[in-house]
Design a protein around this nucleic acid. Sequence first.
DNA 1: CACAGGTGGAACGTTTGTGTTCCAATGAGA
DNA 2: TCTCATTGGAACACAAACGTTCCACCTGTG
Lengths: 191, 191
Amino acid sequence: MSDGTRRAILDTAAAVLGRHSGASLADIATAAGVGRTTVHRHFATRTDLLHALAMDSLERVEQAVTAARPDADEPLAAIVERVATGLLPLADEMHFLGAGATVWDLPDLVERWYDVSRPLEDTVRRAQRTGEVRPDLPVAWVVDLFVAAVFAASDGIADGRIARRDAVPLVVGTLLDGVSTATGSAARSRS
Amino acid sequence: MSDGTRRAILDTAAAVLGRHSGASLADIATAAGVGRTTVHRHFATRTDLLHALAMDSLERVEQAVTAARPDADEPLAAIVERVATGLLPLADEMHFLGAGATVWDLPDLVERWYDVSRPLEDTVRRAQRTGEVRPDLPVAWVVDLFVAAVFAASDGIADGRIARRDAVPLVVGTLLDGVSTATGSAARSRS
DNA sequence: CACAGGTGGAACGTTTGTGTTCCAATGAGA
DNA sequence: TCTCATTGGAACACAAACGTTCCACCTGTG
């Protein structure tokens, strides 16, 4: 089952490299339950594996975002909830993309990342037009903060600081409304 | 000037390792403008350098947090603004601590990190008692989200997505009040 | 049974980074 | 000027990871 082996290697590599970006091919092979030779059979060099994994991870992230229909004509909260829910299981892949920065010198990968983030930026822009998002905020900042919140949530789950079922509500709630009470917010805006 | 050289190596190492955690000692030495031999003179092994850098970074972060007086009896927004302002220049060090995770297996370092995060958690708890922060949010989540926002801001500055002078207001504003308009928030809470 | 595809393991050469030693050069201070 | 401390550079041995090759072993299929 060549295809299954390739998938197992990619999945394991995402998990291992996401936690320790300097892991050796032997580490990955062992974690995947295959021989180092088999890894080399599917990915000639380490660089090939990294690139393939980056492309695969981006593919999955993009698919998750698309499947969450960020362009749907619905309240922003519903969209954010769906995207966050779809992205949380991809914590390993996102971690690899974020930490294993060795890969980002390839132009096609950067290009691909823009394909992923553009729909999210479009959603923010649309929400600003409909008055759901403060119009004075840079679009990129809103997207960055959302991604950062998802990262923080997945780390919190991994470390046991927050419960998995609380993650999405926390992300959605604090991203949209902040951590302040309405009282605190009102008091601050009056001052 | 032995002391100055040591500082230069630590500063450069934080910058280099923060961006590429697998950088070689030769890379660091070159970036610091010193010979590789000199690096080995101050830090016998690579591990020693990593530990010294981790301790030094934690020291700086802790000092920045302490200097921002997180226990002051003031509105939360003022405290958050001071802490964020103090933490932003330490982006390299924080990045190293976050990415160069090779170090976190040392118990004294983990202990040290708790020393840093505890005052922040205390601040959140106090703000929950005074009604400034929603009492239903896990304290750890509020702190994690704040740190994540500072990270996102420093990345945004490095990539030119947001202006340096906008960073602190963005962090403070969106962390406390979220990205929604008051209208959107009210509409959502009515539903 | 014979066979082919995928696999694991052993072995080997090569590269890269590390840690060490030795020596010459530089520079500040007595 | 002499001296001592610090440094840079060269050279070396050592370890780890990489990439390659070859061979034996399964396992399903004809």
